[in-house]
């Protein structure tokens, strides 16, 4: 398990992470979502030992990670913009990681994966497209045999077919080898398909971190039409309404709470029509960040 305890990190005067605390359980795909500049990449760089937090600590399997090779050997970091040796080939990169992850890096698996993705192992990487480089990074990570694979914006630049293939690989490794992929992304639809556990970051802090299923059970989108306008006020007074949107007489409310309680309050106002819908991860993200003032809905006004 990756334990993040009160981690703060500043770049000069800019606070990238502020007192971040949450856990990333093993054997699940962990999605790290956040607004731009929320500190997702910084957090990943701290987890893999690239950066040292200014305060707080990061434990992997109960051991600190920074300058701890035995712990770092369990972590493979795939940055948003991976570095490849100038003029290097995939084989040379594999050689590098084979040296760095002795005993766990599987050349056989690397070759197999590269062949399946039709990537030439002897071709110079600087002739690869952005997506091909991304694929190569992921294949190196998977072949490393590490327990934790940290992916920063990994699905960016991948075509839908490869994206699905990568997801399948992650899930397969997770089930068979207990690998825990940690994926930081803006593409919440992608994460929703694959992640079981999500951490939401905003302005260097954690808004929430929980099982995606639990998260969806605690927040709902309700579309409702009331006869009496006062009914809406009653609902708002009795439930935790995060946001509301009016389209004619149809009101769409985002409400935090459990489903029976929400339905009881709404039906007590005898609506003309109502429907409780599950929220997508993206809607949850928007709702949660809106509450914290991250709202650009009025940008066109």
């Amino acid at each position: 398990m990756i334990e993040i305890k009160g981690v703060s990190k500043k770049y000069d005067d800019v606070t990238a992470l502020s007192e971040v605390t949450f856990n990333m359980p093993d054997g699940q795909v962990f999605g790290l979502v956040g607004t731009n500049g929320a500190g997702k990449s910084t957090l990943l760089r701290c987890i893999c030992g690239v950066c040292r937090p200014d305060s707080g600590e990061i434990l992997i399997d109960s051991e600190p990670v920074y300058e701890n090779p035995s712990v770092k050997s369990k972590v493979f970091y795939i940055p948003d913009d991976q570095y490849f040796f100038p003029g290097g080939t995939p084989e040379e990169m594999a050689g590098f990681y084979r040296t760095m992850y002795p005993g766990t890096f599987s050349t056989e698996r690397f070759i197999k994966l590269m062949d399946k993705l039709s990537l030439d192992r002897k071709r110079k990487i600087n002739t690869f497209s952005k997506g091909m480089k991304k694929q190569l990074s992921i294949m190196l990570g998977i072949a490393s045999g590490c327990k934790y694979i940290l992916c920063d914006e990994t699905f960016d630049g991948l075509d839908p077919v490869v994206r699905q293939a990568v997801k399948r690989l992650f899930i397969n490794d997770m089930e068979e080898a207990g690998v825990t992929p940690v994926i930081a992304s803006h593409n919440l639809r992608e994460l929703e398909d694959i992640c079981e556990y999500v951490g939401l970051l905003h302005k260097g802090g954690v808004i929430l971190s929980k099982d995606l299923g639990d998260m969806k059970l605690g927040i709902f989108k309700v579309q409702v039409v009331f006869k009496d306008p006062l009914s809406l006020e009653t609902v708002k007074n009795n439930l935790k309404v995060i946001s509301e949107e009016h389209r004619g007489s149809l009101v769409t409310l985002t409400i935090r709470g459990n489903r029976p309680e929400v339905e009881t309050v709404i039906t007590s106002q005898v609506p003309v029509f109502y429907e409780v819908l599950p929220l997508t991860l993206e809607e949850i993200f928007i709702s949660e960040t809106e509450v914290l003032g991250y709202d650009f809905s009025g940008i066109t006004q």
Partner: peptide
């Protein structure tokens, strides 16, 4: 002098 390269070198399990 290269952030990406530094990240790669520092992320591998070898003490600095």
């Amino acid at each position: 002098f290269n952030r990406r390269m530094t990240d790669m070198i520092n992320s591998v399990p070898v003490k600095r």
